[in-house]
Design a protein around this nucleic acid. Structure first.
Lengths: 225, 225
DNA sequence: TTAATAGTGTCTTTGAGACAGTATCTA
DNA sequence: TAGATACTGTCTCAAAGACACTATTAA
């Protein structure tokens, strides 16, 4: 019988915003296969472990991101027979998308000290291991399109944020400018997208109202790019 | 080392429309695991085979659907450690969504003679094998939401179809009535959704214009349920 | 006061939805 | 002709987008 037995990898496209630009977490591979190449954080499922659990575990081990730091969702699976020829066994990958707020840098001295946040354009320029460039492209496209109809933009922000920070997420991920007035109206008009805390943040100009995440998950009608 | 090795199944939520109602293909299991239970068509990946290829192969073997009969896309992967305890090895499933036009019935005497098109409500009523009920629910939800922003409704129809047939797809999948006038305007107004062939189909009333699939894949702005 | 940032008001255009009305066939 | 199905026209309302304007702060 030539039924396949395979190793299962969980690989993660972890995205965040730094200085108004979309960044992805990359790690320099230490394992024999593709050693020294840049790759998405990830690793093999263990006995008794789900792919989601493995994704969380690898994010913690390799990037220093804890479960509560990220919003994780499944992206897709990659199963081409030749996608990874460096292992002794066939490897399929289940990819996840993780969105995180900008956080203090990864801690040197841990496994994560070979992890790096890289602007996505630059990341696609490095020749990534295996088919990780394709996975990264798919992850970016998923993030872009999910902003249209889901409230996940807040996953890129700390618990409290201003309207211009929220708008900044859209502008950075979509690479466009949005009209502040219309954006405000749209967000406020979507019940449960954000909640006004009544607090204000002072900066260079007029203080900005501070919002928290509401309980809505879907945007209806959607925002358009 | 307790790295997992697993069997990979490709399981397919194959949907079609019959008599204005959404149906899913189910098969009665012959294999030892869950024998006699109804399940989604699917099976294990072979050496050297991608999950997509396995999905097409199983559709052909078990349901008699050829590659050109369906539009196939990946749905999600299911990896819970206890999702399938009947096999000697851990099994993860990569699920696909397949949309097909209503076709002549499956051919008895082949492997497909234990396949059946079942209305989706009834299918969810049968206690399906493994976690196939969850996969089916996810597939239906995917089909419903993709109708909003993609032109896949045509995958449920033969190459030539009328506007009311296209509207019927939306009405059946969404379970709503749509205004013919507004639906027409919307579809015609979406460049490349459909192409008027100039032909007409005669029936009981005024002949209907016949359309073909256009080359657009996205609906912008989306249709709303 | 000026520059910077936040936020409001309003006008125009577009599209969604409701629905009345017209067109063209079969029986 | 009646009934059935296909299609068009038009009105109203809501939201999107453009953009001028007001508000509140720091320097």
């Amino acid at each position: 019988m030539d039924r396949l037995t395979a190793w299962i990898a969980a690989d993660v496209v972890a995205l965040t915003l730094r200085d108004g630009e979309l960044h992805v977490a990359l790690v320099k591979r230490k394992a024999r296969a593709a050693r020294g190449r840049w790759a998405l954080p990830g690793g093999f499922l263990l006995e008794g472990e789900s792919a989601e659990a493995a994704a969380y575990r690898e994010l913690a081990e390799e990037v220093g991101l804890r479960r509560r730091d990220v919003r994780l969702e499944q992206l897709a699976s990659y199963t081409a027979p030749k996608r990874d020829t460096e292992h002794p066994k066939r490897v399929i990958s289940i990819a996840y998308l993780a969105l995180a707020a900008d956080l203090p840098d990864t801690v040197p001295g841990t496994d994560a000290d070979e992890a790096e946040w890289v602007p996505v354009e630059a990341a696609l320029g490095r020749r990534l291991a295996f088919d990780h460039a394709q996975i990264l492209r798919d992850g970016i496209e998923r993030a872009r399109s999910k902003l249209e109809y889901a409230t996940i933009a807040t996953a890129f922000l700390p618990p409290e944020f201003t309207m211009s920070e929220l708008r900044g997420v859209y502008e950075a991920v979509w690479g466009v400018r949005l009209d502040p007035a219309n954006f405000n109206r749209k967000v406020i008009g979507t019940d449960g997208f954000v909640v006004d805390t009544g607090e204000q943040r002072r900066g260079r100009g007029r203080p900005a109202a501070i919002y928290r995440v509401g309980d809505a998950t879907r945007l209806n009608p959607p925002l358009t790019r």
